[in-house]
Design a protein around this nucleic acid. Structure first.
Lengths: 256, 256
DNA sequence: AAGTGGTCTAGACCACGAT
DNA sequence: TCGTGGTCTAGACCACTTA
């Protein structure tokens, strides 16, 4: 067990930059990186809150807000009367799947697969009634569509079709591997999304693309992504091989 | 628009009972009920935090902790520089599906269906390897199993099989409609659960029970429920008609 | 400019857990 | 008993929205 230098870890010049947001968020980010980089190992015991407050030169309330956020994300376990401990990686992993918005590429990387995309088609179209409703369109504009086949080492995994209002993505043919990367360039990447998960039997067309049998049960995920302003910017519908790409959710009892 | 009496809503005798937990939790629960009962209507503007603090006779920090929890659950929208507003029901509904742990009966009620259960069988058994792993059994004990058919107005919706260590549920035949109600009696109801969602083709046996066709795509949900101590107390596996009982999840971008 | 939510402080007392 | 996290207070200043 390697002993780490808490005085250094919490030293203000290690994590605080003026004008880059509130202290508790900067400290939160700093500690999160320390855990991700194994500076803070699994099971490690943090110093008492009062001591962290002195080392970081902030009040105990600010420390509590920073590490409370880590506890919400299940990176830390705060034990009343005992101390604050870094959780085991096996318990941490949950957070990656549904409590944060990760792209297909990132999700697959987390599971140890390399992934690739093949673009099946792009273009500008007149919106379907479904797209008009999901994207809150007024009727005038058109939508950009991108249809992609997702592949990984073992073979085809999913078909995804994304629709984006044309005023946000005027030229869908410019999209390479990552749609979100392109949207980020114009500050139009969604920060919040709602997913609907259901099950479908594959059509013969889908089955051929995915190298599966017609009628096989696949997961269907419809996702609407929103900007911080509340405007919907992305509607993606996809079918996924459920033996590899299943969904994990953590739920908690009210008031717990 | 009906005007409500905030002085009354926030009066300490309306929500505070000594010895029933921290003030911010009691106030949180009180306001949640007020929203559920439409005392606080959609879009309603709450008084300023400083004013609520005076009315409730607590500090502003305590008010913030109470309404901050409501904001986390997306019941309130706190707008910097403007005020705190009750969200529309359509935005609230998301929370019911995956961010809190609700029983089948409650979930269906939220969607406007009445629901029933038919118990297909109960008993004590030697644990399968899967149960031993999921429930963290040591090998000695047996498990209680309950197999139920879930029904609602339009017909059969799901088959659920629950396994519980026998020392926690010695007599599964005592379970009526709600397993959780029985577990609550001995303080053994889970407060946290992890769900794995995938898709399967129905077997002919399942299809017959559910009044569906063999091979139809259904959602499969495996849930492990945990006590606050971390001990697993419930493993339930179920198959669900996905056209009615689909899953909704909200995901957020890191740091947002 | 006024009023709102957002952040932060310094200090107090309570409740739980290890010893 | 003592040290820990949990709750709570009173007050300050900042950042944003609204008018």
């Amino acid at each position: 067990m390697h002993q780490i230098d808490f005085a250094d870890l919490f030293a203000p010049n290690r994590w605080f930059t003026d004008g880059r947001g509130p202290r508790y968020k900067q400290l939160h980010r700093h500690l999160k990186e320390a855990i991700a980089n194994d500076l803070l190992e699994e099971g490690a015991l943090l110093p008492p809150e009062r001591e962290m407050a002195v080392l970081a030169d902030v009040s105990r309330a600010t420390i509590r807000k920073a590490i409370g956020g880590l506890a919400d994300e299940r990176l830390l376990d705060q034990r009343h009367g005992s101390g604050s401990y870094v959780r085991e990686k096996s318990e941490q992993r949950l957070k990656a799947s549904l409590s944060s918005l990760v792209s297909f590429t990132e999700t697959m990387a987390l599971r140890g697969y390399e992934s690739y995309s093949k673009i099946l088609g792009t273009g500008l179209f007149t919106p379907t009634p479904g797209e008009t409703a999901s994207l809150g369109l007024t009727g005038a504009g058109s939508v950009a569509r991108i249809k992609r086949l997702r592949l990984a080492d073992p073979g085809p995994l999913a078909i995804e079709t994304s629709s984006i209002p044309a005023d946000i993505l005027p030229d869908p043919s410019k999209v390479g591997q990552s749609l979100y990367a392109v949207l980020r360039l114009t500050n139009n990447a969604p920060t919040r999304a709602i997913q609907r998960i259901s099950a479908i039997n594959l059509s013969s067309q889908e089955a051929e693309l995915l190298g599966a049998e017609k009628g096989a049960a696949f997961l269907k995920v419809d996702r609407t992504g929103y900007l911080p302003s509340g405007r919907p910017v992305e509607f993606t519908t996809g079918v996924y091989r459920s033996d590899i790409y299943d969904f994990i959710a953590e739920v908690r009892l009210e008031g717990a």
